[in-house]
Design a protein around this nucleic acid. Structure first.
Lengths: 352, 352
DNA sequence: TTGTATGCGTTATCAA
DNA sequence: TTGATAACGCATACAA
């Protein structure tokens, strides 16, 4: 390996001088600067970041612990992290808890999560990362999962209850409100909701958003229009079948995720209904599959990349000992993706 | 930070001794060992891997450069890498070229790819990773993209033409053969093929597999049954429409990816055909969306996780200076996922 | 403007 | 069985 010493010797200067020109610290005459640079070029020298890290007591690296990289939201968040980290000259050390394979959706097993997380975090700390970003696979409180460390840490797609810890998330309630509102603008008055499991935070927030939109427009809240699924395709199918058995059928369905929305579409088709002419359906998450449904699903898209970017901005701020702008910490807004599964109610009405 | 020195002082031993008990090298009396361990526990000491790396001249870290982490195949490969790397005590430094966002599918722009890759690889080398795994976003020859380095490197989901470099890939031809064969076993004799862009390696291999299966069973090769799409959903739709206009319609379609298969299903439905009763469709890739089509798509699943694992096994072998088993380097086999889009031809025949 | 020397936290050689 | 110490590659205080 060619080191600073080799450069020094060949350029007839001291290692200090080489270091000075490398980092542009110190006053070096243009002449020797040129000479050193030339040797560096000739020997194709690359600084050893390990040695530098040891000396400087910082690694310019960020540990990313992701609960499961194969879950749909993770790659896009990581992509956002990479984008900003690269810009700032930070490197990513990725550790993957592989929670989905290890414990499925059984988050109640906090102890096991904690054990896995703890081991990975310790490793990261041993590698002297400057900070850690923790990416949940599911929006929820992870306070119990990850112990306090004395390095900057930010959470995304999850949060903690400690008020000295930062987390970056999007606004589920607002998104559900927007989706419902969109349906209302399209003339719908009878809007059903297919919820995810009620013990989940997003399900709760999305429910609230739906409810608030109804209230805002003084629409009747019909409990018969609320169905609870389990986030899976099949449950969307089943719940929609039930919805369509009602004597007073809804004209639109808001499904709390794209999978259940897919099931809803299928159920409608099964019953000979045309989506969106006879019934409108809107989903949530903008998962890849949503654009391949027929009709293409209108849905709320999650600001995943942005979450990754912001998490990184915040962690870099923290690493540099400045407190992050407050507006970086605000819940991010979801974006409505208009595709083909929602129509104005007029279409239906005028046909009658 | 608590260091080995602090331990030494508090335990009344030298730093050497501490190091000995830490690494279980040297002969240390049980008594002092206990004492040192106790102090380590008390002070909650964690070795500084940076210092260790500098001293040992190895970091126990693997650089992973992925062309695009948001492309469907990447996360699963990375998951496989993580799995094996964790087992072996290696850490992953992830760098993401974000090629899709930067240059789209324009791989002809080799220069730009090369520039990005070169920069990232240099960074990894500066961080003194022990080896590098390169994950392509598309099976192709990347010899030109990534310059030679004097550290172990293995390629997956792509390859190079240098015979001193290793790559881990799956067998496209075999997979297409298996898929076609499956259709034949189901009694189909008129099997159409919707190909991806013909300039791509996988398209070529899959074509060969299809052709070989036909030949093996002495089935007639009908050029009218071959259509070329562009991997996208729409093209599958369009090509299937063309196929269905033929006077002698195929009874089964093999699409070279799940997206085009989705388009194929939609086209069939549009024309009032029932899948699979009237026509069978099989896809390729086992992308997430394939299980949400209606009917659920039968498809060939790519051994992505296995590719990640094997790449890591090979890189670790290389790092340890042993040449990897040859059977680790064999092309991996894809697995047939039987779902609901393929039926026996008898069904159709008997109904007539 | 440049050089000498020290130390970052380890491991391991050699001596005791 | 243990300890003193050099070295890994670099940055920098201080001296020249």
């Amino acid at each position: 390996m060619v080191t600073i010493k080799d450069i020094a010797k060949k350029a007839n200067v001291s290692t200090a001088t080489v270091s000075y020109v490398l980092n542009e610290t110190g006053n070096i005459s243009e002449e020797t600067r040129k000479r050193v640079l030339k040797v560096i070029e000739e020997l194709n020298y690359r600084p050893n970041q390990i040695a530098k890290s040891l000396k400087m007591q910082k690694t310019k690296s960020i540990g990313v612990v992701v609960e499961d990289i194969t879950v749909f939201n993770s790659p896009e968040i990581i992509d956002g992290i990479n984008e900003y980290a690269e810009k700032m000259g930070f490197t990513i050390i990725l550790t993957n808890m592989r929670l989905h394979k290890r414990i499925g959706h059984n988050f109640s097993n906090v102890e096991q999560c904690k054990e896995i997380a703890s081991k990975l975090v310790d490793e990261l700390l041993s590698k002297k990362v400057d900070g850690i970003i923790y990416i949940g696979m599911h929006t929820r409180d992870v306070t119990e999962v990850i112990k306090k460390i004395n390095k900057p840490i930010v959470f995304t797609y999850c949060y903690t209850t400690s008020d000295d810890q930062y987390s970056i998330n999007y606004d589920d309630e607002q998104a559900a409100y927007d989706a419902t509102n969109y349906l209302i603008q399209k003339g719908h008055r009878k809007i059903a909701l297919i919820s995810g499991l009620i013990d989940s935070i997003p399900a709760h927030s999305r429910y609230t958003g739906y409810y608030e939109a109804l209230k805002k427009h003084q629409l009747m809240f019909n409990p018969a229009y609320i169905k609870t699924g389990d986030w899976e395709y099949e449950s969307g199918y089943k719940m929609t079948k039930e919805l369509l058995e009602l004597k007073d059928r809804p004209t639109a369905i808001l499904a709390m995720n794209d999978l259940m929305a897919g099931g809803a579409i299928e159920a409608c088709k099964d019953l000979g209904l045309d989506v969106p002419k006879d019934i409108s359906i809107i989903g949530f998450d903008n998962r890849e599959c949503s654009q391949y449904y027929f009709p293409k699903l209108s849905t709320m898209s999650l600001p995943l990349r942005k979450m990754g970017q912001l998490s990184t901005e915040v962690i870099v701020d923290l690493i540099n000992n400045k407190s992050p702008d407050l507006d970086k910490l605000k819940k991010l807004r979801c974006e409505l993706i208009e595709r083909d599964s929602v129509a104005s109610i007029q279409t239906t009405e005028s046909k009658k």
